[in-house]
Amino acid sequence: MTAAVEFRNVTRHFGPVRAVDGVDLTIAEGSFFAMLGPSGSGKTTCLRLISGFDAPTSGEIRIFGEDSGHVPPNRRNVNTVFQDYALFPHMTVRDNVAYGLMVRGVDKATRRNKAEEMLSLVKLAGYGDRKPGQLSGGQRQRVALARALVNEPRVLLLDEPLGALDLKLRESMQDELKALQQRLGITFVFVTHDQGEALSMADQVAVFANGKVAQVGSPTDIYERPATKFVADFVGSSNVLPPALSRQFGGPDAWCSLRPEAIRVVEGAGQVTGTAGSARYLGAGTKLSVHLGRSEDMEISVVLPPGQAVPAPGTTVALQPMSGALHVMAGEK
């Protein structure tokens, strides 16, 4: 399989700021790829390097094997769904969707048919005559999607596509985007700071930190086997154990991650003993923080399954990791 997009040692500097700092990345054709990271981590700049709104300071960006780093956006077969949708307010929904065809000189009848086809693809058939201002946020998002898909791009870029939607709508759009991507077989690359979104939609996730890629892998890899402290902490708040503590838990002498739901809590003393702290009810369980106040002031968070009694604050509890839950972080020395 060819790579849809390939970053080869790409950097992008804005003055003294290294927004993207030596990124190597391969995005496989037909995949649903997430770029995940906090704001300022370089993920959006990477997306803009693919769309062509920005050019790399050094390095190569290959789109289907062609060096594209300095090709203007209008000559790239890549389309973008913008975070603010960027719909043209003075055009109807149909003209917005048909815009990409219009600027390429496609005749009016074909344009109209294609636009209607795209609008029914995103379940907005019959909305063609409205203006973007008359639509809800979710509908505008679909128009932006239809507009970006009308040119049949080889790569579709989505910049925080669900950021402006409320929770309920966001969840249903996640399913729809995933289904749409599978149906069309186009490579989707999306940027998000929401790990839940990245894990639930993407086939592959790249976690960005400080302009570098901290880890690339499947959602399971990222979540269960984080490579660095940053990834462990950012993707779903794993416990980060320094080497000494790892040994106490029965692991090797290395930095390890331990998921809060993979720890058993028993009242009384044991292998690792701590003091129960505050508890937070989550619905699907209760999150308890346990202080291991011996050598250092270390806090471990644990998720208790529903039904288990929550130890009162101050109770002495023993912690026991489930077998195989302790994972060595290869990226930390």
Binding site: G52, N74, F82
Partner: peptide
């Protein structure tokens, strides 16, 4: 908004268009 001008060029429009 800048994004609107970017969207236009993203969809294949030349600067004149």
């Amino acid at each position: 908004p800048t994004s609107m001008i970017e969207a236009s060029s993203d969809l294949g429009a030349s600067s004149g268009q």
